[in-house]
């Protein structure tokens, strides 16, 4: 059943099913569909991408070029291409296990629970964010809380409340998407006291890898408004056949 549903949404997302289909479904189904779309926007059965990451903090600004591979929901691998000093550093996620390969010392380090809140490659994302990145639909109940025009644009606002037992720290996430194609514009993350903790904005929507998607993601922590981490997709390809072995520990060093 689950697989069928997945297939269904896969079809939806790849544009094989016409949009009006949504109109016939109920609001909550629609909310769910939007969430699934966001979850799967940058991934598919598999994906290969090249990104640029700019991290701006009070103390430094750094620019990284990254290669990324994903397969399914469980496997992802990110490798630093530049700067040269860090080139070859790999971050591998396989299910709930996460590893880092450090070329300078030629070591693979498995991340333990204590490191989950550490910064991922110097960015404003934590390792935990990466482990849990693909689970919005699993952990939250979406609800459409606004539908209408904002700044001359038709939008839908979703409020995601965590499922009662979901192991997530946020109190709620408010996501705004374009009404016409459900592409996300901004997500606001609130803590349990409903105080804004971080803002994730999506911009520069364009065609890439056969999909229309926002290629720039920018995260701004609420307590440090002057800082941000910005991810820009330079290219992305979906549905590329990737072997499982690409995500194995043994392969980490051989790149």
């Amino acid at each position: 059943m689950k697989r069928l549903a997945f297939l269904f949404f896969f079809l939806v997302l790849t544009g094989l099913v016409a949009e009006p289909l949504f109109a016939q479904t109920s609001d909550s189904d629609r909310a769910r569909a939007i969430l699934q779309k966001i979850d799967d926007l940058w991934r598919s059965t598999s994906s290969v991408a090249k990104l640029k990451m700019v991290v701006k903090t009070e103390h430094y600004t750094r620019t990284l070029v990254l290669d990324s591979w994903t397969k399914g929901k469980e496997k992802s691998l990110v490798r630093i291409v530049s700067p040269l000093k860090e080139a070859g550093t790999v971050s591998l996620k396989n299910g709930n296990a996460m590893y880092t390969y450090l070329p300078k010392t030629d070591r693979v380090i498995r991340l333990t629970s204590g490191m989950m809140m550490g910064s991922w490659m110097g960015s404003h994302f934590t390792n935990d964010d990466l482990v849990k990145e693909s689970r919005l639909a699993d952990d939250y109940n979406p609800e459409i809380t606004y539908e209408g025009r904002r700044d001359g644009r038709k939008i839908i606002r979703l409020t995601l409340l965590p499922k009662p037992d979901a192991p997530v720290v946020w109190g709620k996430i408010v996501t705004t998407v374009r009404a016409e194609d459900y592409l996300p514009l901004v997500s606001l993350y609130y803590n349990e006291d409903m105080v804004l903790a971080r803002t994730l904005t999506f911009s520069d929507i364009r065609e890439m890898g056969g999909r229309k998607l926002p290629v720039v993601l920018r995260m701004v922590p609420a307590d440090k408004p002057g800082e941000y981490t910005e991810l820009t997709y330079e290219s992305i390809r979906f549905g590329v056949p990737l072997r499982d072995s690409r995500f194995s520990l043994l392969q980490l060093r051989r790149r």
């Binding site: 333990t112 979901a166 192991p167 006291d193």
Partner: peptide, 23 residues
């Protein structure tokens, strides 16, 4: 910043070395 009734996410490395979180 916890009070009674507030949630805490517990993250552990399970017996197989997998990271798991629980509310």
């Amino acid at each position: 910043n916890l009070r009674l009734g507030k949630k805490v996410i517990v993250t552990v490395t399970d017996k197989n070395g997998q990271l798991t979180s629980e509310l």
